[in-house]
């Protein structure tokens, strides 16, 4: 069956077996981070709570990180070691922000 499919759809030969799943997961992360970003913006507009600014920044970084990762896959110019450093730095920034949310005490 797979052989027949490969004859009619030669692209199957060129595609990594998990590439489709990887793309779907990446798409899911992108959509969810944008949804959470929109929710945090709404939350800020409703409450004017400074804590929600952290949420906006965190979910923005998630979305940016996913966008850079996506560009890294499709643009050869971005396929450099520095791109991985940037992506890792963004993960670090997200964790630092979560840490700051946990340790801060003043809520305004």
């Amino acid at each position: 069956m797979l052989t027949i499919l490969k004859i009619f759809f030669p692209l199957i030969h060129q595609t990594e077996p998990f590439e489709g799943v990887e793309n779907l997961v990446a798409l899911g992360i992108g959509i969810l981070s944008i949804l959470l970003l929109a929710l945090s913006i709404t939350a800020y507009r409703k409450t004017r709570l400074q804590l929600t600014i952290y949420a906006i920044i965190i979910f923005s970084i998630f979305a940016i990180q996913q966008f850079i990762d996506f560009l890294d896959d499709i643009l050869i110019a971005l396929d450099m070691p520095i791109t991985d450093v940037i992506i890792s730095s963004l993960t670090l920034a997200i964790l630092i922000l979560f840490f700051l949310v946990i340790v801060r005490t003043k809520i305004t």
Binding site: A43, V103, T105
Partner: peptide
């Protein structure tokens, strides 16, 4: 949408330390 956005606030308020 209102419910969800307020749950984001509550999640962050819960994460933040209680004084």
């Amino acid at each position: 949408w209102d419910k969800w956005s307020m749950r984001v606030v509550e999640m962050f308020l819960s994460l933040s330390s209680s004084t």
